[in-house]
Amino acid sequence: MTVQNQQAVARYRNDFLREVEERVEDGEWVKMCMQCGVCAGSCPLGNAWQHTPQKLFMMIRAGKREEVLTSDAMWMCTSCYNCIVRCPRKLPITHIMHGLANYAHRLNIAPKGQPTREVAKLFWNNLAKTGRVNELKFSLAMYFKDGFVQGIKNAMAMQSVGLGLVKAKRLNPMELFGGHKCKDTGSFNKMIAKAREIEDRKKGFTS
């Protein structure tokens, strides 16, 4: 168990609902679900998932912490907002989905290798470095995320697209070396650190 996770368990004991209310974005809405199942029936991908939003909310109330946080259901949400539009109780379901995913990630118990999670990590790391998304590096990182050999195969497969983009001046090969940045990377990094600090305080990660 990760340290963050141990701390969370110690702090909330069996009251997972309270944990969600305090630490998950929009988590205070979970108690308002009336289990009508409209979200489960509305989600275009719902039946392909491990748990529908309705079930996840019930599991939270039933204290099924482990099952909820290791579920890959909330990672599958495509943010289509169908459920939010239809929920008779006006729960911000999509936001709760992402909130849960984010929380599981922070405790580092989210499913390893879950594609959405991996892509999100690559994206964030790419962005957080320079304050700009380096598309070339991001694409290459994506190609090679499953190993060197697979990366070469992916790159070969996309070769003509890549060359086309270069010809059309949509892709600059020089970006591979350093690449462009925002004006003041130092301040940008400070800003991100501050945001993290505020969030941690608000959600009780720091005492």
Binding site: L17, K31, M32, M34, Q35, M58, R61, A62, R89
Partner: peptide, 24 residues
């Protein structure tokens, strides 16, 4: 099934706000 006729729905919501857990 929770059957709350009339304005019972508002009452139900108020109980949820207070943290009463409803389990089907």
């Amino acid at each position: 099934d929770l059957r709350l006729p009339g304005m019972g729905e508002d009452f139900y919501r108020s109980a949820q706000q207070k943290g009463v857990i409803f389990t089907k």
